[in-house]
């Protein structure tokens, strides 16, 4: 059925032309390990399109479709509707989109999918800009981060996409990180078994766009969680559960300093960012029903 030219351990080919140290490449392997081969993937244009391949070639051993930026969620919902007609409730439909295709361009189709309650697992890998087209700022680019469209630092705040998704009242929404693979795998498993729309927002460092040494990809993703710049939590039927610590956090400069996109920050800017993080962590901790585990 598939013409296998090169062997691979999992469902993803080993030689994919993503940059060295790519966080996206790391998470797609672990996500497809959990989901297994009974999965259909929908990928919009973006870095993940490298896995769709070119022409008749693909880097994935599961069927997939490369749609447009605007309608990833709509295509996935259509595929799901077709499977439901055929009685194939066992197949997972996975939409795998970047932050641009999720928080900016694809948000209307995604919102519609959430509203209709389609059983689709939507994964947003968040590398915090339009990396594939040349590091343009997106709705998910953090405050003060330099991109080619915001060379002096982005003046506005990022969208909180996970809260937007959760506000639709979907059964499962969670954030994850490329540095916490066990936590990520648990969340993918949970999302797979959810009867209804589920949304995962995954922080994936991008050495090319953020301007750091590719070797630091994983430690930087870990630093983001340890400083509170990225918080791991899940919202299950409206109840928020924290998965990362909210006390004894490291100073945010540990996360910002190694990155080229934040090198123009003054001490006052870092203080402002630190204060914002502290306030947001307080809000999350007060809404949470548990103590963090990681």
């Amino acid at each position: 059925m598939y013409d296998i030219k090169n062997t691979a351990k999992g469902l993803v080919a080993h030689g994919v032309s993503t940059c060295a140290g790519c966080g996206l490449e790391l998470i797609i392997r672990h996500i497809l390990d959990v989901l297994g081969e009974n999965t259909v993937i929908v990928i919009p244009p973006g870095c993940a399109a490298l896995f769709s391949g070119y022409g008749k070639e693909t880097a994935l051993r599961i069927p997939g479709f490369q749609g447009n930026l605007e309608n990833t969620a709509a295509i996935a919902a259509g595929i799901r509707a077709g499977f439901e007609v055929q009685g194939r409730h066992d197949i997972t439909v996975l939409a795998f989109a970047g932050d641009g295709a999720t928080v900016d361009i694809g948000i209307q189709a995604l919102s519609g999918m959430f509203e209709r309650g389609e059983r689709v697992l939507y994964v947003c890998y968040d590398n915090e800009a339009y990396m594939n087209t040349g590091i343009q700022g997106s709705g998910s680019t953090p405050f003060m981060a330099a991109t080619t469209t915001t060379p002096g630092g982005k003046p506005s705040r990022r969208k909180n996409m996970l809260e937007i998704a959760a506000a639709h009242g979907i059964p499962y929404a969670a954030s994850a990180s490329a540095a916490y693979i066990d936590d990520l795998k648990k969340k993918v498993e949970k999302a797979k078994n959810t009867d209804g729309p589920s949304y995962l927002h995954i922080h994936t460092p991008c050495p090319t766009g953020w301007g750091f040494d590719p070797a630091l990809s994983v430690s930087l993703a870990r630093a983001a969680v340890q400083t509170g710049a990225w918080v791991l939590y899940e919202i299950e039927k409206g109840k928020l559960k924290l998965n990362s610590k909210t006390t004894k956090l490291k100073p945010v400069s540990d996360y910002l300093k190694p990155q080229g996109r934040f090198k123009h920050l003054s001490d006052k800017d870092i203080q402002d960012i630190q204060q914002e993080i502290d306030e947001y962590i307080q809000v999350l901790a007060s809404r949470s029903e548990n103590q963090a585990v990681i």
Binding site: Y2, K5, N38, E57, P63
Partner: peptide
């Protein structure tokens, strides 16, 4: 297996 529609059918590595 679950192959539908005009999908890429050659699994290759660079």
């Amino acid at each position: 297996r679950t192959v539908y529609g005009p999908v890429a059918t050659v699994f290759a590595s660079v």
